[in-house]
């Protein structure tokens, strides 16, 4: 796999030098110098999670358009609240960005009374991808269809591993239970990876997560249903039906979009920097290399969903309304 031993050695040195330069703290005063140093990205979930994967996939291509490097910080605490609060404390200078997952995070902000107002304090400026929530089981599960799972959940309480309670996937399962008379016991494992592990090893009956998660697990996961009008990636998600089609329910579509968030103060203070950010983000999304990178990370390109600030903010508002609607189901003691 290695073509020539000298290559990595040289790269080692150049990358080390790059890191050294990156640490330089000279500050540029002029907008045309932007970006004059590394852009710092806050991820409000853990390393190795879906957000990490998607942020890295994006920045891999974005680096060519932005002409800068990116640094990542992960704050997975309290369902993302920690990450949001720390992001808000950072300097609003357009060098600090938040890579957000609108669905779960807006629900968290709504339910946990964090005091961060989307629109007034923080703005989502570009939507990069959207994926629906999915319910799936491990390869050795006895449930082969959503109907079978729901039937069982009418007889006994079926356990569902979820990332956390304030999450569109959790809303989906609770709403499904409400609509069909089935009982689902949501067990928050605190992240996509541990939730998936619990379903695969049979600790719980099924798992509800964004669709990218079971897709990236290949034949370790069998998708039973998708909380959307249709399955956007039938080939990758073993042709699973839409939940509403399979069960005759009328649940709202439960999706989540990745989006870049930034301080409102930075938008007001550095409009020209925000323009550069938006333009280069759009160039990245239009770049065929980005679709390639998404495919390489194991995800269907159908998830790429370009949206401008208005679209991203509209989704945030819709999610907020959804969270208020299902508030009682998610915060019960």
């Amino acid at each position: 796999m290695l073509s020539h031993p000298r290559l990595p050695r040289r790269r080692f040195l150049s990358a080390a030098a790059g890191t050294a330069l990156a640490a330089g703290v000279g500050r540029a005063a002029f907008a045309q110098d932007y970006p004059s140093r590394n852009v710092h990205i806050t991820v409000p979930t853990g390393e190795g999670g879906g957000a990490d994967r998607d942020a890295r996939t994006f920045t891999k291509v974005w680096a060519d358009h932005m002409k800068t490097n990116f640094e990542f910080d992960y704050y997975p605490g309290a369902a993302g609240q920690v990450g949001y609060e720390f992001y808000m404390q950072q300097e609003p200078n357009a060098y600090n960005l938040l890579f957000s997952n609108i669905g779960p995070e807006v629900i968290m902000l709504t339910l946990q009374n964090v005091g961060i107002d989307i629109g007034k304090d923080l703005v989502y400026i570009k939507k990069t991808s959207t994926e629906p929530m999915a319910v799936w089981v491990g390869p050795s599960s006895p449930f082969k269809s959503l109907e079978a799972l729901v039937d069982e959940a009418k007889k006994r309480t079926v356990t569902v591993s979820v990332s956390r309670l304030p999450h569109p996937a959790s809303i989906g399962m609770l709403a499904l239970g409400e609509a069909t008379g089935a009982t689902f016991n949501l067990v928050p494992f605190g992240g996509g990876n541990p939730s998936a592990m619990a379903a695969i090893t049979g600790e719980v009956d099924c798992c509800a997560l964004p669709l990218a998660n079971p897709i990236s697990l290949g034949d370790q996961a069998i998708v039973l249903g998708v909380f959307a009008d249709r399955n956007p990636a039938p080939d990758e998600a073993n042709g699973a039906p839409a939940v509403n089609d399979a069960m005759g329910t009328k649940l709202p579509p439960l999706t989540s979009s990745r989006a870049w968030g930034i301080h409102k103060a930075a938008i007001d203070k550095y409009p020209e920097r925000i323009e550069i950010l938006k333009t280069t983000m759009q160039e990245t999304l239009d770049d065929p290399a980005y679709a390639e990178a998404v495919k390489a990370s194991g995800l269907p390109t159908a998830f790429i969903d370009v949206g401008n600030q208005e679209a991203a903010m509209a989704e945030a508002e819709a999610t907020r309304e959804l969270a208020i609607r299902y508030k009682d189901l998610l915060t019960g003691g």
Binding site: E47, T201, L217, G218
Partner: peptide, 10 residues
């Protein structure tokens, strides 16, 4: 299995 068991594996 395809799921990291710890932070380094992640």
């Amino acid at each position: 299995i395809g799921v990291p068991g710890g932070s380094t594996a992640a």
